[in-house]
Amino acid sequence: MRFERALCAFALVGVVAGCTSSSDPKIVESTTSAAPAVAGSAPAWTEPGSYSYKLTRGCDAAKPLGIYQATVQGGKVTGSTRVGGATAAPDPSAAVDLGPVTGDEGEEIEVPTLGELVAMAQTSADDGGQVSTEYDTADGHPVKVTVNVSGEADGAECWGISDYKVG
């Protein structure tokens, strides 16, 4: 009986370790929650007081829906600028909001802090959504978040984080 329990525990550790492997040694992936899946694989990340990063929205790296440069201070986004595309402005003659005004460029978003992005992923996972979060193994900050709450194959929302700088 003890041998069977030990074997079961060993198999479980093997399955968990296999689910968190990544081809990039600096990235750890978690597919069930917004926290690293294996203890010690990436340090726990604590959102710093001030930092900057680039947020890429969209699951197709060749055609992102938007790229934003963000600055965060005191847990709030203090500045965000769309990179590589014109900022959308609604037509002043429009009597109602008809949705995105940027066409192929994608709609404008309110850029979240990384803490807000991680919290959103955790809430989605808690609500039964399919969530995949990748973390940098050097400091534990998120580098990619994918959320699918629709269950449809093409229903995922993706956010990539790059150019992360503390200070």
Results as ranks from 00 to 15, higher is better:
Lys76Tyr: 04
Val111Ala: 00
Pro100Asn: 03
Ser50Pro: 09
Leu65Tyr: 05
His141Tyr: 08
Cys8Ala: 14
Leu12Phe: 15
Ser93Phe: 09
Leu65Arg: 11
Phe10Pro: 01
Pro90Glu: 12
Val149Asp: 09
Ala88Met: 12
Glu110Leu: 15
Ala88Asn: 14
Val72Asn: 01
Glu47Ala: 13
Ala138Gly: 04
Ala39Phe: 07
Val83Asn: 12
Val77Cys: 04
Ala39His: 07
Val16Leu: 15
Ile109His: 01
Val166Asn: 10
Ala138Thr: 05
Val77Ser: 07
Glu110Val: 15
Pro43Phe: 08
Ser132Tyr: 05
Gly75Asn: 02
Ala70Lys: 02
Thr146Glu: 12
Glu134Cys: 04
Asp104Leu: 10
Ala44Gly: 13
Glu47Met: 11
Leu114Ala: 00
Gln69Trp: 04
Ala86Asp: 13
Glu107Arg: 13
Ala153Cys: 05
Asn148Ile: 08
Gly167Asn: 07
Trp159Tyr: 11
Glu4Gly: 14
Gly115Leu: 00
Ala156Cys: 07
Ala121Asn: 00
Thr81Tyr: 05
Val15Pro: 03
Glu29Phe: 08
Ala62Thr: 05
Ile27Leu: 12
Ser52Phe: 09
Gly99Lys: 08
Ala89Trp: 08
Val72Glu: 01
Ser50Met: 14
Trp45Glu: 02
Val72Ile: 03
Thr78Val: 15
Tyr51Pro: 00
Asp154Ser: 06
Thr32Ile: 11
Val13Ile: 14
